[in-house]
Simulated scan of single mutants.
Amino acid sequence: MYEKNFPHKRYQETLDFLEKHISKDSQLLDLGVENPLTERLKSTGYQVENTKGEDLDLDFSSVIHSNANVVTAFEIFEHLIAPFNVLREIKADKLVTSIPLRLWFSPAYRSKTDKWDRHYHEFEDWQFDWLLEKAGWKIIDSKKWTNPVNKIGIRPLLRKITPRYYIVYAERVS
């Protein structure tokens, strides 16, 4: 079982979903720089290569030149202005991606200290599904989960019952 505190719950939910659909002998290209989740995936046996921090709205070279048969994108598309473009450039035939869902009771995330750490998009599930479908992907499976916090108040109560994360397994449409 997973630890219930952030980000461990998110990491375990992500790993469980990935293991359900993707074998460990797959070559993964993870969109985004190496991070603690990358290390967790590697420690469980996945072969993961990350992009190098390039602006994926403008530079698709890592995606175009990758030989990975699976692309993962965990909480990355909400940071892009135009995620459709990089989704169309992916050569792999399998995609596992997760996003934070838009919460009606909380504004979009924006760091006050880091100009890149902000959410341009916070999708509703149907919007993300539509984006994937328009970019040439067929959704095979999906899952949502909550991100409760140990605080008192209306928002913490809503976070206990409102799904915050959405993960999708999709395959390229021929």
Rank of each mutant, 00 (worst) to 15 (best):
K4A: 11
F6G: 10
H8K: 15
H8S: 11
E13W: 00
E13I: 05
L15R: 10
F17R: 11
L18N: 01
E19H: 13
H21W: 15
I22S: 00
S23I: 09
K24T: 01
S26A: 13
Q27M: 13
L29N: 04
L29C: 02
L29W: 07
D30G: 03
L31W: 08
G32N: 12
V33M: 08
N35I: 07
P36L: 03
P36F: 08
T38F: 04
T38W: 06
E39N: 15
E39S: 14
L41G: 01
T44P: 00
V48S: 01
E49Y: 11
N50Y: 09
N50A: 02
T51G: 11
T51R: 13
E54P: 09
D55P: 00
D57R: 08
D57A: 11
D57V: 04
F60S: 09
F60I: 05
S61C: 03
S61W: 09
S62E: 12
H65L: 08
N67A: 07
A68W: 15
N69C: 00
V70M: 06
F74W: 13
I76F: 08
F77K: 11
E78D: 05
E78M: 02
L80A: 13
I81S: 01
F84V: 07
F84Q: 15
V86W: 01
L87K: 13
R88C: 13
E89W: 12
K91Q: 12
A92I: 10
K94M: 10
K94D: 02
K94V: 01
L95A: 01
V96T: 08
V96W: 03
P100G: 12
L101R: 01
L103D: 03
L103E: 10
F105Q: 08
P107N: 10
R110W: 09
S111K: 05
T113Y: 15
D114Y: 03
K115L: 05
D117W: 02
R118N: 07
R118I: 14
E124C: 05
E124Y: 15
D125R: 09
W126H: 06
W126V: 12
D129E: 14
W130L: 10
L131C: 01
L131W: 03
L132T: 02
K138L: 10
D141R: 00
D141L: 00
K151F: 08
G153F: 09
I154E: 10
R155N: 10
P156K: 10
L157S: 08
L157K: 13
L158P: 02
R159C: 08
R159Q: 09
T162G: 05
R164P: 01
R164Q: 14
I167E: 07
I167F: 02
Y169A: 03
E171A: 02
E171C: 05
R172S: 05
V173G: 05
S174W: 14
